[in-house]
Nucleic acid binder design. Sequence first.
DNA 1: AACGCCTTAGCAATCGATTGCAATATCCCC
DNA 2: GGGGATATTGCAATCGATTGCTAAGGCGTT
Lengths: 349, 349
Amino acid sequence: MGEDKQIPDRSAPPPRRVRNIAELAKIAGVSAGTVSRALANKSVVNARTREHIQALARQHGFQVNQMASKLRRQKTGVIAVVIPLGHDRRQHISDPFFMTLLGALADELTESGYDLMLSRAIPQDDPDWLDRIVNSGMVDGVLMIGQSDQFSKIEQVARDYAPLVVWGCHQAGQVHCSVGTDNHAGGHAAARFLLAKGHRALAFLGDTTGIEIAERYRGAQDAVAAFGQGASLRHVPIHLSIDEMTDEIAVGLAGLEGDIDGVVAASDAIAMATIRQLDTRGIKVPDDVAVIGFDDLPLARHTVPQLTTIRQDIPAGAAAMVRLLMQRLAGEQCQSLVMAPELVERASA
Amino acid sequence: MGEDKQIPDRSAPPPRRVRNIAELAKIAGVSAGTVSRALANKSVVNARTREHIQALARQHGFQVNQMASKLRRQKTGVIAVVIPLGHDRRQHISDPFFMTLLGALADELTESGYDLMLSRAIPQDDPDWLDRIVNSGMVDGVLMIGQSDQFSKIEQVARDYAPLVVWGCHQAGQVHCSVGTDNHAGGHAAARFLLAKGHRALAFLGDTTGIEIAERYRGAQDAVAAFGQGASLRHVPIHLSIDEMTDEIAVGLAGLEGDIDGVVAASDAIAMATIRQLDTRGIKVPDDVAVIGFDDLPLARHTVPQLTTIRQDIPAGAAAMVRLLMQRLAGEQCQSLVMAPELVERASA
DNA sequence: AACGCCTTAGCAATCGATTGCAATATCCCC
DNA sequence: GGGGATATTGCAATCGATTGCTAAGGCGTT
């Protein structure tokens, strides 16, 4: 289909511009302070001069230097969104759940007038990863997507850093503010649902290094245990990275062929990949093996068959995270939120 | 499944810390300048004092204030990644293609030592959206994901702002530096492939407001025209937002029922939703209707049946965008890049 | 002993915007 | 016309780190 092409560019060097308030002040014939106040739309400056200055600014394409402004005001207007890659190093950032939550957070933050700074953090390479972000002076607050295996680090930092809200589990007595779904209840509901549908030989697909997924697994275990005789649950660790996932699922399913009739997947992505593998092996979903996912991402509606899954309300979660963060920035007390999961029945189980 | 729960938090007020270089200098018994140089690891300070100062900094958990540093050095270390929502206002940011590219860009930028600031831009609400980002003093450069319908705005800004690289189409003579796939060739290849497989009544599913997709459509049109008699191509506009998509596809397909045997989808997301709709209507893919996607997102491998699609090499594209941006930041000339698409044959066509 | 070089550290200006306080101009009312 | 209140504006300190320039001390050489 041909070679890549390179095309020369022809952008010109920039012309001179107004680069700071002092210059604009000279042009307007007022002092720098007045310009600053005028651009901030303070009613203390005369309406006519204010408009005049604003017009000049527009004319010269002038914008106040945020670095200077933020330095002076000790406030950055930026929130860090950080994804700790404690386990599952590579590519975690493209995990569809993270991406979906990130999108929702971006919407919420934008509406609150904050910018969003995205950071990947690799705790193994840099034990001070969180301090670095918190103390950099670059951000007013931190939102974290997932606790990964860094629970104690988060706790330690949260002890003296208030504006931090984490998506993830809540553990009794924890210091940091978290927003998340009741993963145990979700896992429990998923397994119970499969059992109620008559499936008995279940498998849980997911790596339990991260505590969220460990909770889901425990929930499923408890449901199976509560059901009693005749029900079983195998565990197959599957990494979250969508690239590694495929082979691990293939191997895992090959080992269980014919021994299972129901799969509790730790995420919709895993569920989707599982359905795909089952289809390859000629196993019918949900007739031979039922599959239930977790998350209810938008794509859950677009699979064949459509995913039955445990819904996490991601937009609501994102809104809650931002709301709690704003409260903490305002110095208010606030509480962690554990949302109830909801089972969405479609066609895969 | 029960109610959401709220849990009180118990984070404590922060203890006193070293908040600036001057304080640390006092503790260390040296001047602020020396501390600054020591923390920057400059060989001009004595090795012993340097290490002493660094140890003190570590001990007190001190980090230099980035705002002040950046102001002084006139360099932010931040790159803006912006997504213009020209058409398709809502939720565009969660589009899986954007998210995948964003993830790849995050990886590349992190490795180059830059932070990533994410902005949604809504040109309709704010005609100066791009100037605002460029002149804010907050970022050293801008990466844009998609041209949307803002081609002329981008051109205007690019004329006197060098560190800007855009993912999207290349048009002859354009000023701004772009990286993208040859969309016309991709659309052409997709349609040609379906024709070669014996399909004659084709439909293109996608909204052609954005120029990338318009190009894909033109490519498909040209392939059909080149084929000559007996081949046809209908156009069904489908928005990119994954939520609106479902209904539009359902309606679109209902109108064409039995009249088509091949679908060129403008994206993998559309292809996936289309397959799902066809399945609902009892139409077999690829036997009754073949479907070919565009992008080759990771999820294309996980659909049932697996997607045949036109691959855009997203990691390579992201790497190229960052490389070109770095060149431009260094003041070098550089060229736009048009990558050749590649057809990946799987099972959906 | 005198001179020059090198290493190391301090001083103070600078980046650009913000804001408390003081100063001036304007206006109202008696 | 004078006293005081009010509306505007200017002045200068401040946020915290960086860096060019200068100075002090140590050392070697003749």
